[in-house]
Simulated scan of single mutants.
Amino acid sequence: MRAVLLAAALAGGATAETVRRLPAPEARQGVAVGPRDLYAVANFRIARYDKRTGERRAAWEGNKARFPHINSCAVIARDLVCAASNFPAVPHWSAVEFFDPVTLAHRRTISLGQGIGSLTWVDRRGGAWWAMFANYDGKGGEPGRDHRHTLLVRFDDQWRRTESWALPVTVLARIAPMSVSGGGWGPDGRLYLTGHDRPELYAVTLPKGGAVLDHAGTYPIEAAGQAIDWDEADPGTLYGIDRSGGRILAMRPAVGRGTPVTKASPDAALDQ
């Protein structure tokens, strides 16, 4: 194990530790973690790796025209649920793709169409679906929109939009001119986000009033942005990627650790 010190002042001198690095050529957009497996994501390709040995067990490659940009995945209940879009093409369209977590066979699609940005991650909590729609200043940006239009949306089980929140200016300043690439509910009940290229993890919470998320903290990590996933089997361990090196990273960020919240539990309380 090797302690990685990255801008420690951001977290009041806290240390981020990377406990493992696994080779995975498909680790270009992000990583997902299940009880026994890791999943490396690269646009229209996904590979499943044995969590213990690092051996590649399965692979999927889709039609690039239909799956131009799978950005992230998460193991939710009995599915590998992935956020997909047509990034960097415009106008943006987004879809949620469901795969078999063992064979990686494609199961179904929920089309979210056009309108509010490019879908970058999906998670499940409190009986609802949570998703983030990215917007950009330059490449991949739609006219009239920039990174400030990045939006967190809560959907019900019929994928109807029930509520949404904007990012705080303190997070927007860190991700500009790009957007949020990864995210998910952490073991302490807070929502954690990553940008496109900074080695930082942003903790946010739902506000007591208004429509802007509260920024609860910024923590250094080795992963330089991209999609992340918390390990429910090992609370406090966060998986990310080393995009340039083609590696999966297992990290222990110096964040608050509380009672784990399971993605598949529809009755998990929403901590503010």
Rank of each mutant, 00 (worst) to 15 (best):
V4P: 05
L10I: 04
G13T: 03
A16W: 06
E17Y: 06
P25F: 08
R28C: 11
A32L: 03
A32F: 00
G34L: 03
L38D: 01
Y39R: 00
A40Y: 02
F44R: 11
R45F: 07
Y49Q: 08
D50I: 12
T53M: 11
G54C: 10
R57Q: 13
R57D: 07
R57E: 13
A58C: 07
A58E: 14
E61A: 15
A65Q: 13
A65M: 10
R66L: 15
H69I: 03
V81Q: 01
A83D: 03
A83N: 02
S94I: 00
E97K: 04
T103N: 05
L104N: 05
L104V: 05
H106N: 03
R107F: 08
R108T: 07
R108L: 04
S118W: 02
R125H: 15
G127M: 13
A128S: 12
W130S: 04
M132H: 11
P143V: 07
D146V: 09
H149S: 13
L152V: 13
D157M: 10
R161W: 02
W165P: 01
M178H: 13
G182A: 08
G182V: 01
G183F: 12
G183Y: 07
G184M: 03
G184C: 10
D188G: 11
R190E: 15
R190Q: 14
L193Y: 08
R198C: 05
L206K: 14
L213Y: 00
L213P: 02
G217T: 06
A224D: 01
Q226G: 05
Q226V: 08
A227L: 08
I228F: 12
D229S: 15
W230A: 07
E232H: 09
E232I: 09
T237L: 12
S244H: 10
M251I: 11
P253K: 01
T259N: 08
T262S: 09
